[in-house]
């Protein structure tokens, strides 16, 4: 699925060059759940953006299904994003003027899906996250947990190959966080997605097959694959 070779991403801050990701080599097989942990500012989000084609590396290659996202023209990267990637953000990033259903529908617009088909898939996606009765609500009328469920429905409605989640429980209370974790895990297991999840939350990370830690732009795999989709959850580390 993913093969990253010698990936570096440097940012220019004034006269200083700050490396966000350094010489990263990584392979992510299809259907894997990879959790990425690390301190703030050590390159977790940058790695997720490189995987999602939201940014290009300064050097190295980011191969996805045999295509190097670092070198594809922007229109093709956009097309790959539309077809294959679902994003979940810490701050939900819902369009405030659109209803829950319209926010989910926005993900189908670039695919050119017909109106009736869009409505059918939106209703199914909202139903799958337990918000079938909140379709017409605006984001401002929903709780944080409900907004994140809408964001998950938006990420999943196009049936992506990869789900990229950046701190999906970072803005939620404990009870809601558990609901979202359970939902993500169920979806990963049921849909056979590749899930790359950036989180500070060890209780969430330890559910993944592999856990990597980003430190000063370098990724170290701390926990190797422990279970397959549909397998038993490991006991939380004491």
């Amino acid at each position: 699925m993913y093969k990253l070779t010698g990936v570096s991403k440097l940012y220019q801050k004034g006269r200083r060059t700050v490396p966000a990701v350094r010489d990263l080599d990584l392979v992510i097989p299809g259907g894997e759940w990879l959790a990425v942990q690390g301190r703030t500012g050590h390159g977790k989000t940058t790695l997720l953006q490189l995987l999602g084609g939201l940014d290009r590396p300064t050097s190295g290659s980011v191969e996805f299904d045999g295509q190097d996202l670092a070198r594809l023209p922007e229109t093709q990267v956009t097309r790959v994003r539309a077809d294959s990637f679902g994003f979940i953000f810490q701050t939900f990033n819902l369009v405030p003027t659109l209803s829950a259903a319209e926010n989910v529908e926005a993900a189908l617009i670039p695919l050119g899906t017909g109106r009736a088909e869009r409505h059918r898939r939106v209703a199914a996606a909202l139903e799958s996250v337990g918000l079938g009765d909140r379709a017409r609500h605006l984001p401002g009328e929903l709780s944080g947990g409900q907004q994140q469920r809408v964001a998950i429905a938006r990420a999943l409605v196009k049936e992506p190959k990869v789900l990229l989640a950046d701190e999906p429980t970072g803005n939620l209370d404990e009870a809601t966080r558990d609901e979202i974790i359970a939902l993500l895990e169920k979806l990963w297991r049921d849909l056979g997605l590749t899930l790359v999840l950036v989180t500070h939350d060890s209780s969430l990370a330890c559910r993944a097959q592999r856990v990597g830690v980003m430190s000063k732009g370098r990724l170290t795999i701390r926990q190797e694959a422990r279970r397959a989709p549909g397998g038993e959850s490991p006991a939380e580390p004491g």
Partner: peptide
């Protein structure tokens, strides 16, 4: 800007 960034992440082309 962030809203438009999200739409780009969803696969919306710049011209749209």
């Amino acid at each position: 800007v962030r809203e438009f960034g999200t739409l780009k992440a969803l696969g919306w082309r710049s011209r749209r």
